[in-house]
Design a protein around this nucleic acid. Structure first.
Lengths: 208, 208, 208, 208
DNA sequence: TGCTAAGCGAGACGGTACGTCGCGTCTTCGG
DNA sequence: CCGAAGACGCGACGTACCGTCTCGCTTAGCA
């Protein structure tokens, strides 16, 4: 993976001769990759399609990502990078959870379906891809929920001994399953049902 | 998709001349497909490999399944058809749920991982595949859990107004997510945690 | 080869249980084979096509001829079997040669082209096929010409020391070449030119 | 058919982007094709074999020749392009004809046999192939002989009114027939017999 | 400013798998 | 029990995609 977290920037001993790599093209390429991934699914997406849509050469893609799989992982990772530090803080766990429902998560159900399905397929191919994908996509979402629940614990709203690792997976698990396996949309009502009828009771809080 | 599980028994006007298709080979072929799918994953599995392992010609496979994808879906569908009417009945919902934990679900974690990952990828490629796979694989598991919960409702153990459709998905969702997205094993302790810390509280029952 | 010259009919020690093989179908099958060979050429002709056109089963064909190649050789051999003992005898070599021009040899140029081309292709595949095809097809034609020339020698019309083996090939060679390599029709005028301008001068006779 | 022998040099409006097709590989590929054609015959030759022997990918072959058949035709066409303007001039027709006997025509009888047989089969399959093959292979040989005979006419050695078109085909026809139909070698003695016993008498010259 | 290394879009390259079709064999029925 | 119909194992065909390499060009940075 090139720079999923865009953090490395390690110093390069060679003094960088020649033309610089034009990183301004990266977002266009990743967007093209996401589009095609969403339209066709991982298997029917081809690197040539991505290059053509991004008006780039295939070699340019392979200079940046060493395989179709890495390109897709990076593309999906970038997609999710919108929600980082903007966690809501409404004073109650339920308020936080409901406020955390992201509009983009629910729309484009078919699009997300294909994108996520591509990810799952990819993750099963090799442990490295799986690790990278988890770090880039899965873990950030779980971390956000862990933070919200931890705040509720700190406020005394929720008992200290709840299984944080387990319960922070409830919403991600059930939304992913609904999308991938059931092929049904994850709309606002569904997430609210999850909160009120599954997560909050499991945390020892009565439903709203 | 052929119809492995339910024969639709439609009358065929033509009197079926010529050699009959040898359906006794189907299980061998599907088993070979599952083996290779588990060994290599969907993408690295080849139709030639399956044909060779099953000592069959590629044309024979394509006569029965119109593509690699359909072959895999049928193979996975057949895999799951072992447990049908043998639902436990221990008198309590928790007892039923624990007794319903299937050993094979937990073993061969890597095998199942690759197999299910192939399925997810496939389901996203076409709605027909998705429907077939859901009917063959996803729905039966949910149905079993619905029955167990419904019994608990009938016994008065659980309130009448619980969201059966939602809660019957808790265990399938979270086990699938753990396997596919987290790449971690679904062992007995994990499922018992799910029962005691998520499902039973959500049904209004205190944990064991 | 089963029976190229349809001469064997060897006695069978086993007392022939069950239904006898229906040899009355052979001509229809061979005719179908010739038709398709002429229409499509050897490579694009398939055994299934022949069976279908002859309203026969493929197994029936393979019971009689052990391969597509043998079927074709037999078909071509039967085609030629019309001219056997009816050599003309006009009193002069030129008269005999002209009278020997067979109408069917000249018509259906395209048909003959494809048929002969199939033969050539076949002959190159294996020496056995080549031998069989020569015995069935090539040799009879040369033999007829040898007889005509030998008669002329016996009559004193032609010198004793002519190279019979060589000169009897002149007309077959040049008609075959014209058909196969030049793709042009072998009409009556062409054969008469051959006789008058090549063969007779080579035999020491002035042209007509 | 590509145009291996004569580049038609038509102006191409598009400025040829991308990597150039590496035409330096053409001879290697064609040589590999000829080798395998000679070893195995047309039917048992595989495109994969050719690609493997030429260390090329199958797609590279299909980018240049649209089918196995075209590849073979081009290969055979290139084979013959060695002798162009080096016609002998000994002062007498017989001398020219004998000097024109090409060693390579006689050697590798089996090799040539298989190669030519493939050609004949191919020529019968489509008129375009036949035209191309004639132009590339058949016609140049006949043209050389026409030139030799025409010179003899110009010298007054041979009568003005001989049928040049017909007589220039005598040697090609009879050597091809001997190779393809009779499966016998075309050695020097045979060609000399043709010259002395067939062609020269037909031209009104006494044999040597 | 002019040189040079590296970037760029385009597309050919070596491989590998796909899905199709043909050959020659085997099996199931109807006559 | 023969014969049509057609499924079977095998293997070649021609196509598509991956990841690499080459082409002619453009774009920096160093001189």
């Amino acid at each position: 993976m090139t720079d999923t977290t865009l953090a490395d920037e390690d110093v390069d001993p060679t003094p960088k001769l020649g033309r610089k790599r034009d990183h301004s093209r990266d977002p266009e390429i990743l967007a093209a990759a996401l589009d095609i991934l969403a339209e066709k699914g991982y298997e029917r997406m081809t690197v040539d399609m991505v290059a053509a849509r991004a008006r780039a050469g295939k070699a340019t893609l392979y200079r940046r990502w060493s395989s179709k799989a890495e390109l897709v992982i990076d593309a999906v990772a970038c997609m999710k990078s919108s929600s980082h530090a903007d966690l809501p803080d409404t004073g109650s766990l339920r308020g936080d959870l409901v406020a955390n429902i992201k509009a983009p998560v629910m729309k484009d159900g078919e699009r997300k379906l294909r994108i996520m399905a591509g990810m799952v397929s990819l993750m099963s191919e090799s442990p490295e891809f799986a690790d990278a994908a988890r770090a880039a996509i899965v873990e950030p979402r779980a971390a956000a929920l862990r933070v919200l629940i931890q705040r509720a614990i700190d406020r005394g709203e929720v008992a200290r001994d709840v299984d944080l690792a387990l319960l922070s997976q409830v919403i991600p698990s059930m939304t992913a399953y609904r999308t991938l396996m059931l092929g049904r949309p994850v709309d606002r009502d569904f997430v609210i049902s999850l909160v009120d009828d599954v997560l909050l009771p499991a945390l020892g809080l009565r439903a709203g």
